[in-house]
Amino acid sequence: MLWQALVAPFAEFGFLRRALVACLALSLAAPPLGVFLMLRRMSLTGDALAHAMLPGVALGFVLAGLSPPALAAGGLAAGLLVALGAGALSRATGGREDAALAALTLSALAAGVALISWRGSPVELTQLLFGSVLGVEDAALLLAGGAASAALVFLALAWRPLALECFDPGFGRSVGLRGGVWHLAFLALVVLTLVASFQAVGTLMAVGLMMLPAVAARHWARGLAGMVLAAVGLAMLASLVGLLGSFHADVPTGPAITLAAAALWALSLVLGPVDGLRAGWRPPRHLEG
């Protein structure tokens, strides 16, 4: 029974195994980036960038149909354009970066949906927005693996620079840290990871695997390394549960995985030892002074 529900689908269907491998690779790449986004108080930036890549994906779709390289190239270009554009626009006009990002994102989302609806069927629109397990072809699998490797190598190098840039940017600059360069490289990697995610989980849900485990991880660890490890573990669990749910209940993979991640977040929120709600309901006795 348990075998039938949990293992048989993966044993039986190759496309599910491929989707699982892709999602596990993305679970290594996305959540650590999400933890840094959260700590930089940029939790909504991932969401904005995920929406921003839609017109690029849509343009790739209009020009080349559902071809993974064209979709990915379009998404990457649009995402990078908005990530860099929001910063440049706010600097040039004296506005705030979050305001520029909100404006660009909304415009991008509307343009993307309009483009896809113009040339595509509702099924294709759903697939691009919410993902499909059948969408994980060789190219998508390679991109997910590549993004995961790039993210891990980048984080190994950028861990301390990003930590210093978050903790004390002024001091960082005074000792020669190029905070802006690290920040842009970080945003570029966020876009790359989102692009790698969208074939499996869709453009609208790509950010789910990035932010939800990261936000949940805050309730399991106090240190940076602990948070990153917890986020990766939670994302892997959400991928497994989500794919099974998608298979059994016949819902798109994106919402299924994101719902699984959301359930884990809710559990963490209630049960997590760090700032969890349960600790607030029944506060343990205070410690010796």
């Binding site: 700590l39 930590a163 978050c166 903790f167 004390d168 002024g170 106090r222 240190g223 940076l224 948070m227």
Partner: peptide
């Protein structure tokens, strides 16, 4: 005051 003291750092 210019520092983020909430950042998880030892």
């Amino acid at each position: 005051a210019a520092l983020d003291r909430g950042f998880p750092l030892s």
